[in-house]
Amino acid sequence: MPDDGPGAAEPFDAAERAAVYKAIRTRRDVRDQFLPDPVPGPVLRRILEAAHQAPSVGFMQPWDFLVIRDIDRRRAVREIFARANAEAREMFKEERQGAYGALKLEGIVKAPVNLCVTCDRDRGGQVVLGRTHNPEMDLYSTVCAVQNLWLAARAEGIGVGWVSIYHADELKRLLRIPERIRVIAYLCIGYVDELYERPELEARGWAERMPLDGLIHEEGWPEGR
């Protein structure tokens, strides 16, 4: 019988450590670079297993994973996105609308697999260990699952794009998601043969990565900020 007690907390060796940091450093949000090649079942299972290994408050594991391959359903999702995307474009100042429109966001149909990650906020019952004073911890836990999946996908040579522009009620109706369930992420998943060296929005001049030194504060929030 395996021992369920604590085991050795040994650091990774140099090659293992480098691989972890490489996955973190080179992970990208893929928008338009997906290949049509199918994602084999065992590979998809591995990245879903990685997501399922994420930490969760009270070990409630609030996530579910809706795998969407049907092209007609993906086209319907793209229509939901397109309506919201047109609204989003108008929210930016006129000088940025052209740059926004130039961003190619075709992964919903182009990627062979879409994945909707949800959070069941009732799964742990009314009182959940660790959520008693911060009720949003289940949402944060589900985001951890998305990050696990993303890094595992990068290690497999698979790109992931996070679609966040949609009206959740429309998406839930299309995918028959119950009202009480929260949609956390809609992801496009597929092989890619190239990735941006830097995040695409940085490479295209939309924004720059902030210097880390300006974001680290010792002992508390800095005065005057």
Rank of each mutant, 00 (worst) to 15 (best):
D4Q: 06
D4P: 03
A8F: 10
A8D: 15
E10W: 09
P11W: 00
A14Q: 15
A14W: 05
E16V: 09
R17D: 11
R17I: 07
V20L: 15
Y21R: 11
A23C: 12
R27I: 04
L35C: 08
L35S: 08
L35A: 13
P36K: 02
P36C: 04
V39L: 09
V39Y: 04
V43G: 10
L48V: 02
H52G: 07
P55N: 03
S56L: 02
F59Q: 07
F59N: 14
M60Q: 14
Q61G: 04
Q61R: 14
D64M: 06
I68T: 10
I71T: 10
I71K: 11
R74G: 02
A76P: 13
I80V: 09
A84W: 07
A84D: 05
N85M: 11
A86H: 12
M91T: 04
A102C: 12
K104Q: 12
L105T: 04
G107H: 04
K110V: 08
T118C: 14
D120A: 11
D122M: 05
R123T: 08
G125V: 05
V128A: 15
V128E: 14
R131N: 15
R131D: 13
T132F: 02
H133L: 06
H133P: 00
P135D: 05
E136T: 11
N148R: 00
L149K: 00
G161S: 12
W162H: 03
R173F: 06
L187W: 01
L187Q: 01
P199E: 04
P199G: 09
P199K: 00
E200D: 11
L201P: 09
R204D: 09
E208G: 15
E208V: 12
R209F: 13
G214F: 05
L215A: 13
H217A: 06
P222A: 05
E223A: 13
